Simulated scan of single mutants.
Amino acid sequence: MIVLVTGGAGFIGSHTCIELLNDGYEVIVIDNLSNSNIESIVRVEEITRKKIKFYNFDLSDHNRLEKIFLEHKIDIVVHLAGFKAVGESVLNPLNYYKNNLNGTITLCEVMSEYNVKKLIFSSSATVYSQSKFGKVSECSPLGATNPYGRTKLMIEKILGDIYISDHDWSIATLRYFNPIGAHSSGLIGEDPNGIPNNLVPYISQVASGKLEELKIFGNDYDTLDGTGVRDYIHVVDLAKGHLCAINRVKESKGNEAYNLGTGSGYSVMELIDAFEKVTGKKVPFRIVERRPGDIAICYADVLKANRELGWKAEKGIKEMCYDAWIWQTKNPNGYKTSEVTTV
């Protein structure tokens, strides 16, 4: 079977491509490389010893996208392409609405034209209302509080309307919690542009001496140590969740959302402590004021994914931290520029 992965050169996309290739799927990737690097595709091929057909263009390009569907008999689409930084989305909301919504709409139009109606969509726990804290289930109130999260929620609504209009579609929406870690080889991992937006790449760069210190936003929450608690999931476990979702959409029709997390939470201080223990490196930090809108505790209720997808996260926090550190030490400056032939 042929799987089209949009955004397949990114952090989650590259790890998902490995799992797909290892499971016997033929993989085609579309990525405009705006927040990813072609080197990740080269390294995925090195790890799996299998080839990927790579296309470098923007997903909103209807004509080029249609050409892909003409040339390849695509069976399933895994849609991960999109801008993804919360802070950047607040500063440039129109870019996020234009890119994330237009790309998805174009993709669904072309899929419909070519009768490809099996879709895995990369959503986010940011779609949940921040009035809800603690354990979050798929039935918890929705209500994103930033443009990035709202684009994810809007796309979920669009996909719901598509299914209502045509019950031949089979859609699995995966609401990611906080993916961290890296492939155990150290060849692929999270490669942020500039100063990291996410916690673990920031911790890794502080531990390596690349950044001076970590800022912790608040230590007066109603938690064990006063710092915020979140559900961190190893990116390889997350990637494997896509395989389970593919098996689901191959066998049934419908439109369902699934939380992908571990089902438990760790505080910022617990994460730092785990990181220091597995690496032997100190992580200097400074407590600063809370960020507006942050809540004390948020972690996933994963019973639906366990029950309906047959999926469960297997890797613990120490393995997440260790793999992230191996990636950092092997790639202190992220991916290096690589020349590769693209289609």
Rank of each mutant, 00 (worst) to 15 (best):
R49W: 01
R49C: 05
K50P: 00
K53L: 00
F54G: 04
Y55K: 11
Y55W: 06
N56P: 07
F57K: 11
F57I: 03
D58M: 03
L59E: 07
S60M: 06
D61N: 06
D61A: 10
N63D: 04
L65G: 13
L65D: 10
I68S: 03
F69D: 11
F69V: 05
F69I: 10
L70P: 01
L70E: 12
L70S: 10
E71G: 09
E71T: 10
H72D: 09
K73W: 04
H79Y: 05
L80F: 02
G82L: 02
A85Y: 08
A85H: 05
G87A: 04
G87S: 10
G87R: 07
G87E: 03
S89P: 05
S89G: 08
V90Q: 12
V90Y: 12
N92S: 06
L94M: 13
N95W: 10
N95K: 15
N95C: 03
L101W: 03
L101A: 07
N102R: 14
T104E: 01
T106H: 15
L107M: 11
E109D: 14
E109K: 15
E113M: 13
E113C: 09
N115L: 10
N115S: 12
K117Q: 05
K117A: 02
K118F: 09
K118H: 07
L119C: 08
L119M: 11
I120N: 11
I120W: 09
F121G: 02
S122V: 00
S123C: 02
Y128S: 06
S129N: 07
Q130D: 09
S131Y: 15
K132W: 01
F133K: 15
G134V: 03
K135A: 11
S137R: 12
E138A: 00
S140I: 12
P141I: 10
L142A: 08
G143V: 02
P147A: 04
P147Q: 09
Y148Q: 04
